[in-house]
């Protein structure tokens, strides 16, 4: 049984993203635990990449800090193994395909499952290119979390229909980052998804305020926040733990109950 399957069983969820290794892997472990205590349903761990083309400046900055701190894929696997001794929260990696490809699909997926990772979000691997990696992930019961964008239109059903874990609905055009206003008709994307699957649909990109979480979880199964969290880590660094707890708690409290 994959841990993500239970994440949305009894409630809608708040999903938090952090870059692994920012400012250090030791702190990443602590931050995950703090965010779990605050009520996060699932945590996305970013594997830092030299050229994260789907990220805005805030998460690019976290990638740079993590790489400068000497973070590598192997060290992240070791950290997750340690983390798994303390928590059973569903964990997914957000990583660029080259990190997986260069490590070797088989080797990467095997290490994920051994360490306790439940799924992968790969922003530069669209539907058309999942054929190489997906069978390997299936073998290890590792879920591929697909992304659906405001421009996906007639692709929505095809992407959603066999999705496992949850579906990442991208709220806005552009890259990750806090936005003052989101104009996409996300609700109609979610209802399109509902026509073909019961897999939870969670909304991300541009979210930073509890009111947005409340609005989105009216009709979606979860809200995803990255840049706003990474900003807190960027500001408070090693001391970010309590601030993350406070922030994530407010956000989790705003999630609409089932």
């Amino acid at each position: 049984m994959n841990r993500i399957d239970k994440a949305f069983d009894n409630n809608k969820g708040f999903i938090a993203f952090i870059s692994a290794g920012d400012p250090s892997l030791e702190k990443t472990k602590e931050f995950v635990i703090e965010m779990e205590k605050a009520g996060a349903a699932l945590v996305e761990l970013g594997i830092p990449f030299s050229d994260p083309i789907a990220e805005g400046e805030v998460i690019q900055g976290a990638n740079v800090r993590a790489l400068q701190a000497g973070t590598t894929t192997d060290k992240i696997f070791d950290m997750v193994k340690e983390l798994r001794k303390e928590t059973n929260i569903p964990l997914v990696f957000l990583c660029y395909l080259n990190s997986v490809f260069k490590y070797g699909y088989e080797n990467f997926c095997k290490k994920c499952v051994e360490a306790g990772i439940d799924g992968l979000i790969i922003p530069d691997m669209p539907l058309e290119e999942k054929g190489e990696l997906l069978p390997v992930m299936d073998k290890y019961d590792l879920y591929l979390i697909p992304l659906i964008a405001p421009t996906s239109k007639e692709r929505i059903r095809e992407i959603a229909k066999n999705a496992k874990g949850f579906i990442y609905v991208v709220s806005s055009l552009g890259v990750t980052g806090v936005r003052s206003e989101i104009t996409t008709d996300v609700k109609s994307i979610v209802s399109e998804i509902r026509k073909v699957t019961d897999t939870p649909a969670c909304i991300g990109f541009g979210i930073s305020k509890p009111s947005q979480v409340a609005d989105y979880t009216e009709y979606a199964d979860g809200a995803i926040v990255g840049s706003a969290i990474v900003k807190i880590i960027g500001e408070y660094k090693d001391e970010a733990g309590p601030h993350l707890y406070e922030y994530v708690k407010q956000m989790c409290d705003a999630v609409v109950k089932k």
């Binding site: 789907a54 421009t151 991208v170």
Partner: peptide, 18 residues
């Protein structure tokens, strides 16, 4: 599609695929 031997492909974010 769009392959040259094993090379090529379309590895871009979903937002751009359409």
């Amino acid at each position: 599609k769009g392959r040259f031997g094993i090379h090529g492909g379309q590895y871009v974010p979903e937002t751009l695929m359409n």
